[in-house]
Simulated scan of single mutants.
Amino acid sequence: MNHQSDQYYIDKVLAGEVNAFSELVERYQSLVHTVVLRMVKNKEQAEEVAQDTFVKAYQSLSKYRGDAKFSTWLYTIAYRKSLDAIKAAKRMMASEIIEDISEGEMELVNDALGYLQNKERKQIISDSIMKLPEDEAAIITLYYFEEKSVKEIVEIIGLTADNVKIKLYRSRKKLYSILKYYILPEISAENGRAI
């Protein structure tokens, strides 16, 4: 496993060693693809947008100033490329009908996300996130799966911290609404309660 810093490879690329960029691609390709897929909701289109993200990052590498982490800068490009792809395709998202959720049920959201981490449940989580609107899917992915802070998400998607927090709260509620049919029977069974 290579433990060199991102800046090490950036410096090599800028010094003319273009093959060093492949290390950055390898390091971030899975994460970029995940964020993009959850926004564009189409595997083939996600692959294309992820590739475009890395092309744009390579072409713009000399403009990277290091003010933010390279990953944050790269996710910003991925987010914007995803939005461009969505607009270009003029896709209409069907609004999900979200049930009213009590505050008591909301407390289960954090438990639910932690509870659903094992391998056989990752697909349920991924499918559920795909049902969220693009921007909310990106925020949930960046916050919970890429472990980005609210400040980093603000840099990536260009909203205020308050807007990100509101979207994160609403997205968790929507995600819980989608996931609760998978979660509640299992949580109740684990706690010895019947539904």
Rank of each mutant, 00 (worst) to 15 (best):
M1L: 05
Q7W: 01
Q7I: 01
Y9D: 07
D11A: 01
V13N: 00
V18Y: 12
N19F: 08
S22D: 15
S22Q: 15
E23T: 10
L24M: 02
V25F: 11
V25G: 08
S30H: 15
T34H: 13
V35T: 11
V49R: 03
V49Y: 05
A50Y: 09
V55L: 15
V55P: 02
K56S: 10
Y58H: 06
L61R: 04
L61Y: 02
S62V: 05
A68C: 03
F70A: 07
T72F: 03
T72G: 01
T72V: 13
L74T: 02
Y75K: 14
Y79S: 04
Y79H: 07
K81C: 12
S82M: 07
A85T: 05
A88F: 08
K90V: 03
K90W: 10
R91L: 14
M92P: 07
M92T: 13
I97Q: 10
D100I: 09
D100F: 13
I101P: 02
E103S: 15
E105W: 03
E107A: 12
D111P: 00
D111H: 12
L113M: 15
K122T: 04
Q123F: 00
Y144F: 10
Y144A: 04
K151M: 14
I153L: 07
G158D: 05
D162G: 14
D162E: 14
K165A: 10
K165E: 15
Y169T: 15
R170I: 08
R170K: 14
R172D: 11
L175C: 04
S177D: 15
S177M: 08
Y181E: 15
Y182Q: 08
P185C: 02
I187L: 12
S188F: 09
G192W: 01
A194R: 15
I195P: 09
